[in-house]
């Protein structure tokens, strides 16, 4: 039942946890006319409480990590997390630096990994579609 409800239009929450902006402008580009994920009902949510899919970009800094956890807790379940870019997956070039947690999956459970630095908008849409699939199959984290 609850999967039927969210099936058609999962909304995105985009959170920058200390990225270089590269992934952010690609996420921004992915919601513009050339790629247009609104075909799939995907659009940016104005508030984390409306969102279904959390897009994490950036090497998670310790300061932003706390807020990432809080943001994740505020989202209603079922929800999925997409880690976009090498930094969000493992820290990328910044891995091992002192203010970093290095990797979103150390703070919250990550469902889909999108490698690249930054990934193309198509790759981000591909990742979002995989997250939708996981949500529809009843996966995702509660």
């Amino acid at each position: 039942m609850r999967n039927k409800l969210i099936r058609y239009s999962p909304w995105l929450v985009h959170f920058n946890t200390g990225a270089c902006n590269g992934c952010d402008i690609e996420v921004l580009a992915a919601i513009t006319p050339l790629f247009d994920p609104e075909r799939m009902g995907v659009k940016l949510a104005p508030n984390p409480r409306h969102g279904d899919i959390l897009i994490v970009t950036g090497a998670v800094t310790k300061k932003a990590g706390e807020r990432l956890k809080r943001l994740y807790d505020q989202m209603p379940s079922p929800k999925a997390v997409v880690a976009v870019g090498a930094c969000a997956i493992s820290g990328g070039v910044f891995a091992g630096s002192y203010p970093l947690v290095s990797g979103a999956d150390k703070v919250i459970p990550v469902d889909v990994y999108v490698p690249g630095c930054p990934p193309r908008p198509e790759a981000i849409i591909d990742g979002i579609l995989k997250a939708i699939k996981k949500l529809e199959e009843g996966g995702g984290s509660d």
Partner: peptide
């Protein structure tokens, strides 16, 4: 590929050009 930043420094520096490159980008996975 989780850490790689696709700067292709490895491809550039390889003395025997051993790296096979492609334009494949859709690597998103679980």
């Amino acid at each position: 590929y989780g850490k790689c930043v696709f700067c292709y420094q490895c491809v550039f520096v390889c003395p025997v050009k051993a790296y096979i490159t492609s334009n494949k980008f859709d690597m998103a996975d679980y």
